[in-house]
Each structure stands twice: as C-alpha cells, then as structure tokens.
C-alpha cells in the first residue's frame, strides 16, 4: 500500500547563505495492507520528516513514494488532495482547526468531505468521541480550548472517522492516560484487521510492541556528512 524507494530530501535555506542541508537519502520501505510499521531513531533522525513526505507536506528531492497507485513525490496538488480525502489519513501531534467550529463537526468533516450525509457523519463522529471518552458536554465546543490530551483524542477521532486504506500516526498515544491509550491501541488493531496499512511513530515502547509488526530505523536513511 505504501512503497518508498530511494527517497531523498534536502532543505535549502536561502536566507542563510543558500545552505543546502541534506536530511535523508536512500530511504526505502514498504507497508503492506493490514500491517503496521514503526519508525524508530533518535529525535531529529528524520521520522517526522519521512511521515510528512508521505503525506505530501514536504517535497521529495528524489526517489519514489507510492501510496496506493499515486507517486506522491511527483503528483500534482489536486491528486494529493484527492489522495488525502479518500485514501491516506494522518494523525499529527497537533490539532489545527478553524476557531469556533464545534468538536463534533471537526471530527465529522472528513466524512462530509466524502459526501456522507451530515446526520450520518455526525452520528459516527459522536460514536468515536464517546469511545475516546470526550465528555458529551464538550462536543458542541471548539477543541481549541481543550487540554492537550483531549485535543489529541479529537485528532485521533478525526483521523479514524473514515476507514482510510493507509494511515500515518505521529505519536498517537503521547499525552494519553492509560485508559485512553488502551482505546487508541485497540482502534489501531481494528484498523489493521480491516486491512489498513499503517506507518507510525511511537515513543512508547510497549505500545510499539503491541501494534507494530516491524520496525524501521530511519538512522539508516541519514546522509553521510559531507566534507
């Protein structure tokens, strides 16, 4: 479902003397349907960078990055938008929403975007929020005022609203208490069971052991320091 081959990335800092900083080279990995692959490596090794490239948020410098049938490395913006709507979900560590939009609508939005009738989308959003223990009295409020853990759970509910065939999870269990961590881990297991290909970053080792089928150390994708 996700095939990465010889992917490379560098940043050119035009405002700092046009310094070119290579951050990744020769990155290759595959995530099959029903499989969860965990990215490991020290902070700054490029785990999030790789995830962002898969999502089309960072441009690839070279290589192939196939999600489903689309090469994200060379796709047009429209194709990436369609991919994100239908095929590829992303739970990032941060929730970015229009202020004042109720939590229920934030979670329902991926379904509305796919043309699900509003009532049905909201009912499904409510089920997810209830499962993630977001009190019902908060559903009509904007999540911008929520605690970090609550925002994280809203983000997860939103990311799981549509059964995406491919999912990117950036620290989905960080800042969650034990009970909610359990809920999220079962949701990940259920997604795998329905055939989702998942690429994730988990600092929590026991969570990693529970859901990941394989681990890939991104340190191997770090370019050798140039002279």
């Amino acid at each position: 479902m996700i095939r990465i081959h010889d992917l490379s990335k560098s940043f050119t800092l035009h405002n700092q003397g046009a310094a070119v900083i290579p951050v990744m080279s020769g990155a290759s990995l595959t995530v099959n349907p029903g499989e969860c692959v965990g990215l490991i490596g020290q902070s700054g090794a490029g785990k999030s960078t790789l995830m962002r490239m898969v999502y089309g948020n960072y441009l690839a410098a070279g290589g192939k990055l196939i999600v489903g049938t689309l090469d994200v490395a060379t796709a047009a913006p429209r194709q990436i938008i369609a991919l994100r709507r239908d095929t590829l979900g992303y739970v990032s560590q941060f929730l970015r929403v229009v202020p004042r939009v109720p939590t229920l609508d934030v979670v329902a939005e991926p379904l509305l975007a796919l043309g699900t009738p509003a009532e049905q989308a909201r009912r499904h959003a409510a089920t997810l929020l209830a499962r993630l223990n977001i009190p019902e009295r908060l559903w009509s409020l904007s999540p911008t005022t929520f605690s970090g853990g609550e925002q994280q759970r809203v983000n997860i509910a939103r990311g799981f609203a549509h059964p995406y065939p491919a999912l990117l999870l950036d620290e989905p269990t960080a800042s969650l208490d034990a009970a909610n961590r359990e809920v999220v881990l079962s949701m990940i297991q259920e997604a795998k069971a329905r055939g989702a290909a998942i690429l994730g970053i988990f600092h929590d080792e026991s969570a990693r052991a529970r859901v990941c089928d394989r681990l890939v150390d991104v340190t191997g994708f770090t370019p050798r320091a140039a002279a």
Partner: peptide
C-alpha cells in the same frame, strides 16, 4: 492535518 473544504474530482 488541516481542515480543508472538499474538492470535486
């Protein structure tokens, strides 16, 4: 990542 209006195909 961000909320986006949907796009027709």
């Amino acid at each position: 990542m961000t909320l986006m209006p949907p796009l027709s195909t």
